Computed example of a mutant assay.
Amino acid sequence: MEIKEKIVLDMLTNDSVSILKQQYITIDGTDIKVGDNIRNAFMNTQTERELLKAKLPEEFYNAVIAIWGNSPTIAEPIVE
């Protein structure tokens, strides 16, 4: 029995994206969800672009960057 992962790019805008990951198995041609949903949100900052690239398969990352463009649209947060 192989566990597969489904990735959904949800709420993709110029400034952010929500990534939904679900794991499932297939039994007798029927997909059955296992475990909890995993959801992460990313803002279009330089740091989060790099994090997104490390966490997503290339084809999903490229789809996000196609919408986000070549440059971040949000400044890095200032941490005092």
Rank of each mutant, 00 (worst) to 15 (best):
Met1Gly: 15
Met1Val: 09
Lys4Leu: 14
Lys4Gln: 14
Lys6Met: 02
Ile7Asn: 10
Ile7Gln: 09
Ile7Val: 14
Val8Phe: 14
Val8Ile: 11
Met11Ser: 14
Thr13Gly: 01
Asn14Ile: 06
Asp15Leu: 05
Asp15Pro: 00
Asp15Cys: 00
Asp15Tyr: 04
Ser16Arg: 11
Val17Phe: 07
Ser18Asn: 10
Ser18Thr: 12
Ile19Leu: 08
Ile19Phe: 14
Leu20Phe: 01
Leu20Asn: 04
Lys21Tyr: 04
Gln23Gly: 00
Gln23Val: 01
Gln23Pro: 02
Tyr24Glu: 01
Tyr24Leu: 06
Tyr24Ala: 04
Ile25Tyr: 08
Thr26Lys: 15
Thr30Trp: 11
Thr30Asp: 13
Thr30Ser: 04
Asp31Gly: 08
Asp31His: 10
Asp31Thr: 12
Asp31Ile: 11
Lys33Arg: 11
Val34Thr: 12
Asn37Cys: 08
Asn37Tyr: 03
Asn37Met: 08
Asn37Gly: 09
Ile38Arg: 14
Ile38Glu: 15
Asn40Gln: 08
Asn40Pro: 01
Asn40Leu: 06
Asn40Glu: 12
Asn40His: 07
Phe42Tyr: 15
Phe42Pro: 07
Asn44Ala: 05
Thr45Pro: 06
Thr45Asn: 02
Thr45Asp: 03
Thr45Trp: 02
Gln46His: 11
Thr47His: 12
Glu48Cys: 05
Arg49Lys: 03
Arg49Gln: 07
Arg49Trp: 06
Glu50Arg: 09
Glu50Met: 10
Leu51Lys: 13
Leu52Tyr: 01
Leu52Ala: 05
Ala54Gln: 14
Ala54Thr: 15
Leu56Glu: 07
Leu56Met: 10
Pro57Ser: 08
Glu58Asn: 14
Glu59Cys: 02
Phe60Trp: 07
Tyr61Thr: 10
Tyr61Cys: 08
Tyr61Ala: 14
Ala63Gly: 04
Val64Ser: 07
Val64Asp: 13
Val64Ala: 10
Val64Phe: 07
Ile65Val: 15
Ile65Thr: 02
Ile67Trp: 00
Trp68Phe: 08
Gly69Ala: 05
Gly69Val: 01
Ser71Arg: 13
Ser71Tyr: 13
Ser71Gly: 04
Pro72Phe: 06
Thr73Trp: 05
Ile74Met: 12
Ile74Tyr: 08
Ile74Asn: 09
Glu76Val: 04
Pro77Met: 02
Pro77Gly: 05
Ile78Thr: 08
Ile78His: 12
Ile78Gly: 02
Val79Asp: 10
Val79Glu: 11
Val79Asn: 09
Val79Ala: 03
Glu80Trp: 00
Glu80Pro: 08
